[in-house]
Design a protein around this nucleic acid. Structure first.
Lengths: 208, 208
DNA sequence: CGGCGTTTTGAGAGAGCTCAACATCGGTGG
DNA sequence: CCACCGATGTTGAGCTCTCTCAAAACGCCG
């Protein structure tokens, strides 16, 4: 999902001491299963290993409000580490595997190893930066400008190449466009000579 | 700005030990002044005391991309605590006063006091949650549904009342609508009997 | 009273969404 | 080997919705 900050240290193994990592347990979910429920006792830090899990709340009318959809590599409900109860539901949107690092062990790691607490904070700070970037991206109405904005934020060190992860359809969802609009915009940019497309990559005609 | 998690412990004084707080210095900015620049050496944690400061990047075409606008009580560029250089520009959008807690003192507080590091992480975790919620909100195209989504996420404990901070115009910017569209949508919701409006408050006709 | 910003309402146009049809590609099974 | 199927990719056409520009009512403060 998060393609905006490839340099951000978001992987759990990058900051959580081995002692806490070894205490983790994996849990397998089928589509529609609850990982946890509103009001339930918080378990710890959840890392998605496979599949997708959504965070939701249910209003009185019975409608589901989606707060977030997390995919592989992402952590879920980081704030629950500091709260005794969950503030929303977590439901598997697909079959999924989730790794749970018990709260006790994670917090103990923070106590004993200030560096790990700092690393966790640094990870979150990067996430905040990345999320803000994405919110601003959504303020751009024009599909062309939004795609340009995305591409420019994701060029590689050569300042010309953007490596795409996953399908264009997934990218469309990530940047908040219908897939048709994205296809059309890509085609327009290519026709105008601004970019060229090869399998899984996009190349700017000029360095940006 | 951030109205989604009113219960979040965001105030600096709530988590930063007095020792680090006493090391702070205030800085006064006039509209258009730079608080810091891309590539500049990071100073520390910035808290907005008054006015507004925006974080921006400049693309190769010379256009300014706004990442975030921070107002009184908010902190700025938290990630810069863990980086030697700034990754964007900070410019005063209005006359402003900013309190700067030197990086050295803040990090020392984290080392000596694991609780404060945890509290900082908790603050950031809340921000992450709040920002993700806002991103999901932006996925809703319909103005009516987007406003409903916002209102339902912000009802008070009585499940009926939403207390507004600031003007409707500011709210429009926060949820990504033109102010005209927001006014119209509010008027429609009120005419349909779904809500009633009083000064600074919105009341749902039924509990949600 | 005279600005200034917010709140409202109106009208028009543009842009993306939706529905729809079709192409393409990889995998599956007869 | 080929027919079939599902998912991704692509293009077309119409329509709805919000944005934008405009203008006016309202409230606040010097």
């Amino acid at each position: 999902m998060d393609q905006l900050k490839p340099d951000a240290p978001t992987a759990v193994k990058d900051w959580l001491p081995a002692a806490a990592r070894s205490a983790a347990t994996d849990r397998t979910l089928k589509t529609g299963d609850h990982l946890f429920r509103l009001g339930g006792r918080t378990m710890g830090l959840c890392e998605i290993i496979a599949g997708h899990v959504r965070l939701t709340r249910i209003d009185r009318a019975g409608r589901e409000i989606v707060l977030h959809v997390a995919g592989p590599g992402e952590t879920l409900a980081e704030a629950s580490l500091f709260s005794p109860q969950y503030h929303c539901d977590a439901i598997a949107s697909t079959d999924a595997v989730v790794r749970i690092y018990p709260k006790r062990d994670v917090l103990a790691a923070f106590e004993q190893n200030p560096k790990s607490a700092q690393a966790f904070a640094a990870t979150l700070a990067h996430q905040v930066m990345s999320l803000r970037t994405r919110i601003e991206q959504r303020n751009i109405r024009s599909a062309r400008e939004r795609v340009r904005h995305f591409l420019m934020l994701n060029v590689g060190p050569d300042r010309r190449t953007v490596v795409l992860r996953g399908s264009l359809k997934e990218l469309a969802a990530e940047i908040g466009l219908s897939h048709e609009a994205l296809y059309r915009t890509m085609a327009t940019l290519e026709r105008s000579g601004e970019i060229t497309r090869t399998a899984g990559k996009i190349l700017f005609s000029k360095r940006i």
